Simulated assay, not measured.
Amino acid sequence: MKQNKVAVYRKEHFNAAHRLHNHAWSDEKNATVFGSCNNKNFHGHNYELIVKVTGEPNPDTGYVLDLKVLSALIKKEILDQFDHKNLNLDTVYFQQVNPTAENIAKVIYQLLRDKLDEQLELKIFLYETERNYVEYPA
């Protein structure tokens, strides 16, 4: 069977603060498990986000997905909600969910997945630092 799929990528950037904290645990256990990431005054990251969309190019346009459309979608669904925000306090997504890079990537995936054609495959790469990043789905 002939494979005609192509992957397109969009790279974005946002800054956000968060605190890793499990409300079911004692302060001591949180400090032990999360270390400085449990700072009660929060801490921030300069996140790099890469969104990968895979599908068959449209025969009329040649696009898998118009990257202007993807850019606008990421801005509306992710950047406008997360950039220069405290993820714990300023978003509904992390009031009950610990805002680890893993969980942030899962939330980003769901926010975008709901807006994309079901025929398109989606993958999120989220860099919390230059050396630490997550991929979802793996």
Rank of each mutant, 00 (worst) to 15 (best):
L73E: 02
S71D: 15
N39L: 07
Y63H: 13
G55I: 07
L120V: 12
F125H: 12
L120S: 02
N58T: 11
L70R: 08
L65T: 08
G55Y: 02
L87F: 01
E102K: 05
N22A: 07
P99R: 03
N58D: 15
N58A: 13
F42L: 02
H45I: 06
E118S: 13
S71Q: 15
R131Q: 13
I124E: 10
L20Q: 04
F125R: 08
T91E: 02
E12L: 02
L79Y: 02
H23T: 04
N22H: 13
V33N: 03
V33K: 14
A101Y: 07
S36D: 00
L120D: 08
S36E: 07
D90I: 04
D90Y: 08
T61A: 09
N46C: 08
A7T: 15
Y127G: 05
L112V: 01
L89N: 11
I104L: 11
N98D: 09
L70Q: 08
V53R: 08
L116D: 03
L112P: 07
K5S: 03
V107K: 07
D60L: 13
H21K: 05
P57C: 12
K68T: 13
N46R: 03
I104H: 00
E102L: 04
E130F: 10
L70Y: 12
L65R: 04
N41K: 13
V33E: 15
R19S: 02
V51F: 06
E128K: 14
A16Y: 03
A105C: 09
W25C: 12
H45D: 06
V92C: 11
K11F: 04
F125A: 01
H45V: 07
N41P: 00
H45N: 11
Q3E: 13
M1H: 11
Y136L: 00
H45W: 09
R113L: 13
V69E: 14
F94Y: 09
Y47T: 06
R113F: 15
